[in-house]
Design a protein around this nucleic acid. Structure first.
Lengths: 348, 348
DNA sequence: ACACTCGCCGGAAACGTTTACAAGACAGGG
DNA sequence: CCCTGTCTTGTAAACGTTTCCGGCGAGTGT
């Protein structure tokens, strides 16, 4: 049966059989040598040489089919332009690399079809597991998650009964931290520029804002609310509308991109930050540090969420029978120049 | 030979044979129905039903092995935290999607080992092609590129004789644009904050800066040069060193992250931008627009480079025999508030 | 009634790898 | 001299698909 064409069309990529034939051994021996298990000195030498001669590169797809694993993990995020996801990605990558997985990232662009398509595409075993951080989550997602042949860990709010590994931020406490901070430093008219209210974070932050106001004994005022999406441009436009309408003494923004936009509007309007208007963002990304003045921001622990998600996923890969787990990470507030107490003038 | 176990261990994922057995047809028929080609109404119905019952999800790995294509492209960039790569990625993704490829991104972290490892790993046919945008390029890269079984398009400088599809920016002209703009608006002491000089862009921008100075008839002054890397923090530190040492009337930065850092230092030092010191960045990313004042920046056409690279890759996938091609995209300067002409006071 | 086409079907090969298994070679110990 | 154990090798099955090909039944035209 070795009378198969030993020479293929000449430039077809070399396979293990090419190598084996050239070295004059069986494909089993060739494979063993190439994987560094067994083989007499003689065969090892011959196979190595043959492999080098034809420039043999193993076909990872075939290997994965046989091994039933690829060694790849995927991260799907809505918007990789948002630095908070970059942070999360870095954390995941570190954990993954330590367990000898490579991480691939896909930006779904917040479009739910893209996300389910990804679930139905990539997750068909191109990757061994997946971390998904959706902005919205619909029935489509849930059924896609359920059918997924590989484990998926979800970062973000998930219906309580959904049986998936899940890491969530505590937006509620995070918003509370920001509002309390602003209130205790004497601000009374605390505006809120939210992202899209039909997203999970958007909805959560909105209700948390109302609750927080009540908590510190401030009245809720429709006038002080504006809505954009979670991007810079829309956030900035929303801040502009807000400032054209009313004059808050503080603005809390649903993420740092929005906060950067608001800062821009404030400064362009000749207002001093924080003396005239204080500013607090959310996610505590590099952007908050890069702005001038630096923006106070509530961290929802993106890196920590990434780490946790990665670990959940890895442990599930080891033992698929595990019961679904759910972790929540605590927010922290970093106060920077944009919301320093009023009385102290800034100096440097 | 159908006496193979029809029931596997019960919870093993369903394969096409499971479906076929359940529907009482051959695997060939099952496969055909599942791919929507042929089949009598009767069988179509039975197979569909069986597939739904067992929650059949095709194994993409197996499919790819047979089809010898995966429908995936990869983009490897050094630092996904740099918005310029985000822009490039978006452009690539759009082109890829239109050709029915999905794009996966991997951040190599500028570490050359990671990059060659990626080439040798991913490119072993997990993806159909790859776009690589390395900061440095060594012999390791070149040989890895040569052995790669899938086509790789390189974005960035490449040795002239290297036979790979290649898209490059024109750093030289870009720097010239910036320096000429600053010079013609009356700036005489134009400082330069570079990134790592041992990277390809770093080296190119350095020599271009010297040439540009000569071009506009300004003297080259060591004092006006500082070096960081291409990140914000190092760039900012470099700008701080520069300002502690001397007093330029303009700063040109090798990318927008550095420029953002320089802006921070300038403002913190109480200097007015652009009245006291003008500022120009490079890459023209979202960051330049988000800063206050907005930063003038030279675009090296990241999106366009991405588009071109994607198209080169796609056309090579169609016809592997194509001769290697090389494209260069022209830079453009966007003047914003940070470098407006001196005499006009800014207003808004 | 016969030859022909046409659509559907199943068997089997193929994609490129790893690995279980058995067989052969050889050495050492009794 | 034989038995046993170790080491190496090759054959073949397996991973889960898709697809080539030959067969078969039904319909059509003469």
């Amino acid at each position: 049966m070795t009378r198969k064409r030993l020479q293929k069309s000449a430039d077809a990529p070399a396979t293990v059989r090419t190598v084996a034939a050239l070295a004059g051994v069986s494909i089993a021996s060739a494979s063993r040598v190439l994987n560094g298990i067994g083989g007499s000195a003689e065969t090892v030498q011959r196979v190595r040489e043959a492999a080098a001669r034809v420039g043999y590169v193993p076909n990872a797809i075939a290997r994965s089919l046989q091994a039933r694993r690829t060694g790849l993990l995927a991260l799907a995020v809505a918007d990789i332009g948002n630095p908070v996801y970059v942070e999360m990605m870095r954390a995941i990558e570190e954990v993954a690399k330590r367990a000898d997985y490579q991480l691939l990232v896909h930006a779904t662009g917040a479009d739910p079809e893209g996300e389910t398509a990804l679930l139905e595409g990539l997750a068909r075993r191109y990757v061994d597991g997946m971390i998904l951080s959706p902005l919205r989550i619909g029935d489509g997602h849930l059924t896609a998650l359920r059918r997924s042949p590989v484990p998926v860990t979800v970062v973000g709010q998930l219906p309580d009964e959904a049986p998936f590994d899940n890491v969530r931020a505590d937006s509620h406490t995070g918003v509370l931290l920001a509002v309390e901070h602003l209130a205790t430093t004497g601000r009374k008219r605390i505006a809120f520029v939210n992202g899209a209210p039909d997203t999970l974070p958007g909805a959560a932050r909105m209700t948390a804002y109302r609750a927080a106001l009540a908590g510190v004994g401030l009245p809720y005022d429709e006038e002080l609310i504006e809505i954009g999406d979670f991007q810079y441009a829309q956030g900035r436009a929303a801040a502009a509308r807000l400032l054209a309408r009313t004059r808050p003494d503080a603005i809390f923004c649903a993420n740092d991109l929005i906060a950067a936009g608001a800062l821009h509007e404030l400064l362009a309007g000749g207002l001093r930050v924080p003396q005239d208007v204080a500013l607090v963002g959310m996610d505590d990304t590099a952007l908050a540090e890069m702005s001038f003045p630096q923006i106070s921001s509530v961290s929802l622990g993106a890196a920590e969420r990434g780490r946790l998600a990665a670990n959940l996923l890895l442990s599930r890969l080891e033992d698929p029978q595990l019961a679904p787990r759910r972790e929540t990470v605590a927010p922290t507030l970093t106060v920077r120049a944009s919301s320093e107490a009023r009385q102290e003038e800034r100096h440097r």
